[in-house]
């Protein structure tokens, strides 16, 4: 499973979506239960799965699934 597929799977799991609904353009406004707390749950799940740690600035900058994927890719590359 590649990075994008893994992120998609986690996003779908946290926000109770079908994986086919998780596009890079998906934003918090488009998901009813994507609030500040569920975003933190998402980040924790991502960090545990990829063994990375995002900064608060990075966490606050997550405004779409695409942005999240780019952040994860950057951190995975670094580690």
């Amino acid at each position: 499973m590649d990075l994008n597929e893994k992120v998609t799977e986690i996003v779908a799991d946290i926000f109770e979506l079908d994986e086919t609904e998780v596009a890079d353009e998906l934003t918090p406004d488009m998901v009813d239960i994507w609030d500040s707390l569920s975003q933190l749950r998402l980040v924790t799940a991502i960090e545990q799965d990829f063994d990375i740690k995002l900064s608060m600035d990075e966490i606050e900058s997550i405004d779409s699934v695409g942005r999240l994927k780019r952040l994860v890719a950057e951190h995975v590359k670094l580690s």
């Binding site: 707390l37 933190l40 749950r41 924790t44 740690k53 900064s55």
Partner: peptide
Amino acid sequence: AIVQGNPAKVIFQRR
């Protein structure tokens, strides 16, 4: 820690 739920569980660690 940031906790949520019943029973409250850790969802995030402040940094």
